[in-house]
């Protein structure tokens, strides 16, 4: 086994925790959104695509990358098209594309002057913007292609255990629902055709009733196997977790507001955001420790995950450092 294949093996999709790929994708997206350097952006596009090629397995979500590539292409085109069509045709200094302009008046606001001369700077700017979006899309696409969503639902924090359960029920039910829609439609024809309203309800109602019955059976089976036991957390702990969440939300929202309305106060802004983020994570952790449920097969953190996470962390620090230094 060569060094590269061994390295790939270490981080490939089925060997890693889904969370690490999501964090990696997210940090690449953040780096992309903070830079205006076309080479960095291109590197991210090419990099994510090759990582996907190397590390993906043959699961259905790994096939979704085609969708992301198409979307990225569409976004670049749209971004440039907007620049060309709705260009603010004031400067003709370094114009490289001279198009006749057309007026479009909606009867409110300024009439739009479509097309007109386009400067190379503006064009470049739009192109970089387009590539930035494409890079973000591909980075998230990478996470989506390499992380098994079911595994991800299993790794959700305990505070979201109920919602994750509901979503896994939904994911399991969806294909059954399509099957039962087809089944009921066929069965309905055995009863005789009703017209109009009855025809729709004649299919929707049995499917819904059937699925609800089924889900109640599932709920009964979950309850009968112990689902719904409450933790033995004190009232103090419960209220404490809620209070912490509230403070976290306040910090986050005011940090966001500062960023938009008074960007001069960089230190305050940064403090609020970081504090909000940290408190949010702590409050979710706190709401998660209920200690009533065992996780028999927790997704372990392996060497591959450590490599992915370390790389993502370095990238993020560099990108944010650069952004705030500006």
């Amino acid at each position: 086994m060569s060094a590269t294949t061994r390295a790939v093996h270490l981080v490939s999709a089925y060997k890693t925790n889904p969370i690490s790929w999501w964090l990696a994708g997210l940090s690449l997206a953040i780096v992309a959104s903070l830079t205006s350097n076309i080479y960095v952006l291109l590197a991210i596009c090419v990099g994510t695509l090759s990582i996907i090629r190397l590390c993906r397995d043959d699961s259905p979500w790994a096939q979704s990358i085609g969708f992301y590539i198409k979307l990225a292409a569409i976004v670049i085109t749209l971004r440039v098209a907007f620049r060309i069509i709705f260009n603010l045709g004031s400067s003709t200094k370094d114009a490289f594309l001279l198009l006749p302009s057309i007026d479009l008046d909606f009867g409110f606001g300024n009439a739009l002057k479509l097309f007109g001369p386009i400067s190379a700077t503006a064009f470049n700017f739009a192109l970089v913007d387009g590539f930035r979006l494409a890079a973000i899309i591909l980075a998230v696409g990478m996470a989506n292609s390499l992380a098994n969503p079911r595994k991800l639902l299993k790794s959700t924090p305990g505070a979201l255990y109920e919602i994750a359960t509901a979503l896994s029920i939904a994911i399991n039910l969806a294909p059954q629902l399509i099957a039962s829609l087809n089944r009921v439609r066929r069965a309905r024809s055995l009863r005789g055709q009703s017209k109009g309203m009855k025809a729709i309800t004649g299919i929707v109602i049995p499917v819904l009733e059937d699925t609800i019955d089924q889900s109640m059976g599932l709920a009964a089976s979950m309850s009968a196997r112990g689902f719904g036991r409450k933790g033995n957390r004190s009232k103090f702990q419960v209220i404490g977790a809620r209070l912490l969440a509230f403070i976290a939300i306040c910090f986050m929202v005011s940090g966001a507001a500062l960023l938009l309305f008074s960007p001069e106060q960089q230190v305050l802004e940064l403090t609020f955001l970081v504090l909000g983020l940290a408190l949010a994570v702590i409050s979710i952790k706190l709401s998660s420790t209920r200690g009533t449920i065992t996780r028999y097969r927790k997704e372990p953190w392996r060497l591959g995950d450590v490599i992915i996470l370390a790389a993502s962390l370095v990238l993020m620090v560099l990108a944010f450092g650069g952004a705030f230094a500006r």
């Binding site: 505070a159 969806a174 699925t211 979950m222 979710i284």
Partner: peptide, 21 residues
Amino acid sequence: VEFATGDISSKQLALLGVLVA
């Protein structure tokens, strides 16, 4: 999390699952 920590019963979860699906 705020909505989920108000105790959700297995029945509500199942209904949620049905409608989401």
